[in-house]
């Protein structure tokens, strides 16, 4: 852990023996890990391994069958935790409200909770959009934006909450390499600037090893490896090695 993060506004996250089944099929089979305040923690794993479900539990969109999630030592099941700690999820699709403009989307949290007068909200919206490189887009509709821009708007919408914990669900999926780099830089920059705890779910190896303080690899609902990027890269577990070293070979090279 780097020193500059010790006094941040980030929160710690602890997941204990988390289990969840859907229609009799167990998706999470006892997940245990903890994320320190201000840390960038990346959860990697193949599609369908339960990464997004895990994220939905941490933000309170799903209830576990057993186990618990502690935010700054307080159980998510106890009332008022969501109000006490500011958390935001950047959805894989962006999940912008399609009937609202970009500006209305970004300022939705502030306007619905009546935290500022409209002029102040507009100022904050412009500032947050500028901080993700989208100056002048506030009057556009989400349908007018590219995939990468939508994700950056979703990040701006998350920033408005002034979160202590940001969860990113596949932030670089469906993006070209250049946009993916911009998003990765954004994650690092936010972490450095506001000291937010970041939990990133991804199967993008470049992103994971580029931004993570620690990485966990999840496979079939279980964590099979966890540690700093170098440790995970050297992990001898064949499942981990197969996932991290997966490479495409042309038929004549096999």
């Amino acid at each position: 852990m780097k020193d500059h993060r010790d006094n941040t506004g980030g929160v710690s996250v602890e997941v204990r023996s988390l289990r969840k089944s859907f229609n009799g099929q167990e998706v999470l089979k006892g997940i245990d890990f903890s994320v320190r305040r201000g840390e960038i923690f990346v959860i990697m794993g193949p599609s369908g391994s339960g990464k997004s479900v895990l994220l939905r539990h941490i933000i309170g969109l799903e209830q576990p069958d057993s186990g618990e999630i502690l935010i700054q030592g307080e159980s998510m099941q106890s009332s008022g935790v969501m109000d006490k700690h500011r958390m935001a999820l950047v959805f894989q699709s962006g999940a912008l409200l399609s009937s609202l403009t970009v500006g209305e989307n970004v300022g939705l949290y502030l306007s619905e909770h009546r935290l500022h007068p409209p002029e102040e909200i507009r100022r904050i919206v412009i500032e947050k959009l500028e901080s993700v490189g989208l100056k002048g887009t506030e009057d556009k509709m989400p349908s007018e934006l590219s995939g990468g821009m939508k994700k950056r708007v979703a990040i701006a919408r998350a920033l408005v909450i002034e979160p202590q914990l940001i969860l990113y669900d596949e932030p670089t999926s469906e993006l070209d390499p250049l946009s993916a780099v911009v998003i990765a830089e954004e994650i690092l920059e936010l972490n450095r600037r506001i000291g937010v705890t970041s939990l990133v779910v991804s199967h993008d190896r470049d992103l994971a090893f580029g931004v993570a303080d620690r990485i966990a690899v999840i496979h079939e609902g279980r964590i099979v490896a966890m540690g700093e990027p170098g440790e995970v890269e050297q992990n001898p577990d064949p499942v981990v090695r197969r996932f991290l070293r997966a490479d495409f070979k042309r038929p004549n090279e096999r």
């Binding site: 969109l61 999820l89 999940a95 912008l96 619905e112």
Partner: peptide
């Protein structure tokens, strides 16, 4: 469509 495209989930995460 808001439900299918996770817009309602997004509202919930914003405590709306």
């Amino acid at each position: 469509s808001m439900r299918v495209y996770q817009e309602i989930d997004a509202l919930r995460t914003m405590n709306i």
